[in-house]
Design a protein around this nucleic acid. Structure first.
Lengths: 142, 142
DNA sequence: CAATACCCTAGTGTTATGCTATGATATGCC
DNA sequence: GGCATATCATAGCATAACACTAGGGTATTG
């Protein structure tokens, strides 16, 4: 019942970009240093986020990455799905292509996984990157 | 964000035992056949459940497994934890031994995982095996 | 034109998964 | 007692995912 580091690290990076949103592209090296991640590895993760349309990039010197939309318009669920695929505690209740469970009709335990899936999705989709930034600000007040 | 088959199959087996609770020990071969699982593999899973005190066994001919407590006293969460370990979307917010996150204090994304963890735990702990049996009965009414 | 930074792909050690297989031990029944 | 039926325990193993590392190519700035 565990997330891979993809989602874990990827959200950290997105949060970093959100905090610096509006001040132009930011190089990955900086993000990786700030969030204490391998920049080579992070590059692969951000490529997935770019392909999902969540971040945009500018190449060349002074280039870098920035959020494709306002932080308030990016939900944590968007980030996680881009990196980890559809939310699915078990294959037969995946958000996408639920797979062929030949006994889906009379499989009672299936209802458990549907509820787990929905509760995870609800949490992830109810938090935006802007929410996280607000939280960080409040934590820094002390 | 996925459960292994351990939890998936294990819950199926426990549900099977719950449905036949009260009629003495049931051999694993029967459970495996009914739930369409490899009996050799299921043996390993049920060993974990036995060590967790959720099922009891009788050896020898006419032996088998049976629930250690009433189905109403066994939560799905108990089963999953026995098979998958503590619920922890990421290591630093594990239910047990949360691990040393050197920036736990100012890690904002951490709050996301805490909420995910708690919502999963809440769903799993709010469903008992008896609930599943009741659901199965209602589904069979049609 | 050189430094910077994105972009892409290949490779790699480690771990977990999802089993299979084999043998030992305990119990019930004839 | 002896045989069939179970649980119990452990070892092995092919596959896949994970978490990176490495190295090269391409675009942009100054």
């Amino acid at each position: 019942m565990r997330l891979s580091t993809k989602g874990h690290y990827g959200l950290k990076a997105m949060f970093d970009l959100a905090q610096n949103h509006g001040s132009g592209p930011i190089s990955l090296r900086i993000v990786a240093q700030r969030q204490n991640l391998s920049d080579n590895y992070l590059e692969q993760l951000i490529a997935m986020l770019r392909k999902a349309g969540l971040v945009k990039s500018m190449r060349g010197a002074k280039g870098g990455y920035f959020l494709a939309r306002d932080p308030a318009e990016i939900r944590v669920g968007d980030v996680i799905r881009a990196l980890e695929g559809p939310i699915a505690p078990v294959h037969c209740v995946s958000e996408k292509n639920p797979g062929n469970c030949n006994e889906a009709d009379n499989c009672i335990t299936r209802t458990v996984w549907v509820r787990v899936r929905d509760s995870i999705a609800h949490v992830l989709d109810s938090i935006t990157l802007a929410d996280l930034c607000r939280q960080a600000e409040e934590a820094n007040k002390d």
